[in-house]
Design a protein around this nucleic acid. Structure first.
Lengths: 241, 241
DNA sequence: TGATCAATTATACGAGCGAAGAATTGCACA
DNA sequence: TGTGCAATTCTTCGCTCGTATAATTGATCA
């Protein structure tokens, strides 16, 4: 398993004479493609192996470029990682908005759609939890990232609280806040368990549980939207009632 | 900010002549104390800065010893980190058991006590979430740790499911499982948010929310145990019923 | 009291890290 | 068709990492 020559890079097996290392083929691409590839590569590596796995060499290899290119597009490895995190957050909040724009105006239906969108791909994703965990410490120690994180978190919770308020029940404002916290926690918990213990749950199971739990917390019935939530029906029957 | 002499360790300012580095004072201690100190140091560092912050040198420094000692008590740094994780898991499950042994036999009271114990220190701890996140990837890639993790997780959820079953309501078994998943998710979510956004919540707030939410999901009232849960009363009133 | 030995510290090594800058390459435009 | 220049690769540097092992220290016991 030892390299033959001690210091020369291993040449790939093409036509080159031994001892003369090949230069990697030079391929141009657009700035957008390169940035996107680097961000994707960084996210994958963090999701799979944590911050420690995202070295400049590993990121470059996965993106199909050489390490030096990272610092051509980003001032430092840290800047790339920050950019990747922001891109992640923006992507996740956008998904929530999309789900809402796709359904009608009935408040309970909209809430149900929002919950379902949170508990299915691409939000419910084994990679996502790994990414989230990998960034946790960095977020807590970097003021810029922390601000971005909190705004993203509160945006989600506020959106949820608004949907709850739109139900039109008669509850005082303070109660509304704690309901939003509770529902948010339930969705977070289901999202987390579904993302980590991927194959402990059947496809639509978490959505059903989420709808029933949030419905119970709020005192409304969210289970009547089979039409809009295709996963439902698979596992609902086997539980009775 | 540059060291004066390039290769000599900086001597602490006591009586030594310049250029002659002092040897650290030799202090003996019991094996148990050393192991405990190293495990504690490793946990703190992982909790604060993630896996990457837990280097042998940093761990040794925090434990008040020199790096070499780590490999005197553990075969490798990885073994120390594994040991620290197992110790963490054992500690947390033990806390749950303790909470249960301290209350009476009424099923709803026991469930309420269990929930409250989950949502207050030492389980609810800013460090805990950081630790958990730091270990996530290591757990997923190390079969031994994964087994330990899953058994610990399922032990918690089974305990919760048992407490729910003891309520004596008339629900089919499959429904019981999904209720346990839902309650567990709610507690996880509250625990996580409380641990990360420490000062967004008043002391007993999360406990009240947890009791009310789980109660709503299960269709029982868990809010009647002020006597056993001292935090309640502080924030219950301000929300109106 | 002095020899022994485990506990502890100190030193050294090779590997991999992020960063910096020099060396190449192919495209755009004259 | 050639030339300038940005995009990309390559090389190198200083640093820190985990590990290995040698050197020291203080308690134990004959």
């Amino acid at each position: 398993m030892d390299k033959s020559s001690p210091s020369a890079p291993a040449p790939s097996q093409s036509d080159a004479a031994p001892g003369i290392p090949e230069r990697r083929r030079y391929i141009r691409d657009t700035e957008e493609n390169r940035r996107e590839a680097l961000i994707q590569a960084a996210q994958s590596l963090v999701a799979e192996g944590g911050m420690q796995a995202a070295t400049v060499r590993a990121i470059a290899a996965r993106a199909g470029v050489t390490p030096g290119l990272i610092r051509h597009y980003f001032n430092s490895k840290d800047e790339l990682l920050r950019t990747a995190y922001v891109a992640l957050m923006d992507g996740m909040t956008d998904t929530g908005e999309d789900a809402l724009s796709a359904v009608g105006t009935a408040p309970d239906e909209r809430l149900a759609a929002f919950i379902a969108a949170t508990l299915r791909p691409p939000v419910l994703d084994p990679r996502a939890a790994g990414l989230w965990a990998g960034y946790l410490h960095q977020v807590q120690s970097d003021p810029g990232l922390l601000a971005r994180h909190e705004s993203s978190y509160l945006r989600f919770r506020d959106r949820l609280q608004q949907l709850i308020a739109d139900l039109g029940r008669d509850v005082p404002p303070a109660r509304l806040r704690s309901e939003a916290i509770a529902c948010n926690a339930t969705l977070d918990g289901l999202w987390l368990e579904g993302s980590i213990l991927t194959n402990h749950f059947a496809p639509g199971e978490l959505i059903v549980i989420g709808l029933r739990s949030v419905g119970a917390i709020l005192g409304v019935d969210l289970m009547g939207f089979d039409t809009f939530i295709p996963e439902i029906g698979i596992h609902q029957s086997q539980e009775g009632k």
